[in-house]
């Protein structure tokens, strides 16, 4: 069954590749898409470029390398990295448990995973700070053992991690579902330990999806503002994120500087996204190829 479906899908794809424009609606869909993309996406982006191009190169460089801004890059990158690593592990665990096991409440867990996407980030922010500050449910417990979360960089990690939980789960889950049990069972029956089979057989198939999920979660964390601002202490050089720097420049009516920093962040994110797309495409082609 599934093999025939695959073949027909593949031949369909090839067919589509050769005989382009057999189907109707090219003009209409192209028109709508281009109109929309230009008006909604490109026009405002041109604004960003124009605003930034009003600066000389020296001004631009001075703005984006201001020591405090540079420090905010470090804070943002490090916390985003920590958050996406956490999400990589937590996501893998959740995906594994949801695919492999049956247990009461599984449906609920599966549904609630997407909560961070559905919940407005500002609401997430005030909720997390309520939980993690010293008077909150978690904060009380944590401060008893001497751990401070709210108003430290750890708080930023928590906020970033929360807002991007679903990425890894949702990219790993389908791959895990499709994973053929044959290799795995063969390895197990040959007497390999679980840990070894996971490392040698399962993980190699999972990691591309994991990397994609982690990278998406990382990109998302770079731009996050609403949830972080409430829980970060915003101490200069310690817990200021780059989004806050952009916000500060706006408060100073310095649109050019805000645009400069924003365009740098945008560039990094776009390069990251584009690489994922490219890499994914290549990886998928390799999978299909063999």
């Amino acid at each position: 069954m599934s093999t025939t479906a695959n073949v027909s899908a593949a031949s369909g794809r090839r067919f589509a590749g050769r005989s382009k424009r057999v189907l109707p609606g090219f003009g209409l869909s192209l028109g709508i898409s281009l109109f929309f993309v230009s008006l909604v996406l490109l026009l405002p982006l041109t604004g960003l470029v124009l605003e930034t191009s009003g600066m000389s190169w020296d001004q631009f460089w001075f703005t984006v390398t201001d020591p405090r801004v540079v420090e905010s890059y470090k804070v943002t990158l490090l916390t985003a990295f920590a958050a996406s690593i956490f999400n990589g592990l937590f996501g893998l665990l959740l995906a594994w448990v949801l695919v492999r096991y049956d247990f009461p409440g599984k449906r609920l867990v599966d549904a609630v995973v997407d909560l961070p996407f559905a919940l407005p980030t500002a609401v997430a922010g005030i909720t997390l700070v309520t939980l993690f500050s010293e008077s909150g449910w978690y904060g009380q417990l944590l401060s008893a053992v001497g751990i401070e979360v709210a108003f430290t960089p750890v708080g930023i990690v928590i906020a970033m991690a929360f807002t991007s939980i679903p990425f890894v789960v949702r990219t790993v889950q389908p791959v895990l579902e499709e994973l053929s049990p044959a290799d795995e069972e063969a390895a197990v029956s040959l007497g390999a330990t679980d840990g070894r089979v996971f490392r040698k057989v399962i993980f190699p198939s999972l990691w591309p999806a994991m990397v994609t999920g982690v990278a998406l979660s990382f990109t998302r964390s770079l731009g996050e503002f609403g949830a972080i601002i409430f829980i970060a202490g915003n101490t200069p050089y310690v817990s200021e994120v780059t989004s806050l720097m952009i916000f500060m420049r706006l408060q100073e009516y310095d649109y050019a500087a805000a645009s400069a920093i924003a365009s740098l962040v945008l560039l990094v994110s776009l390069v990251l996204l584009f690489s994922i797309n490219l890499w994914q495409g290549r990886y998928l082609r390799r999978l299909e190829g063999h």
Partner: peptide
């Protein structure tokens, strides 16, 4: 000596009063 720099005045009040910082 400043422990938390909130983005606005009311945020600072909330930090001090509600969060006990």
């Amino acid at each position: 000596r400043v422990k938390v720099f909130d983005s606005g005045g009311r945020g600072a009040t909330t930090t001090f009063v509600e969060r006990g910082i």
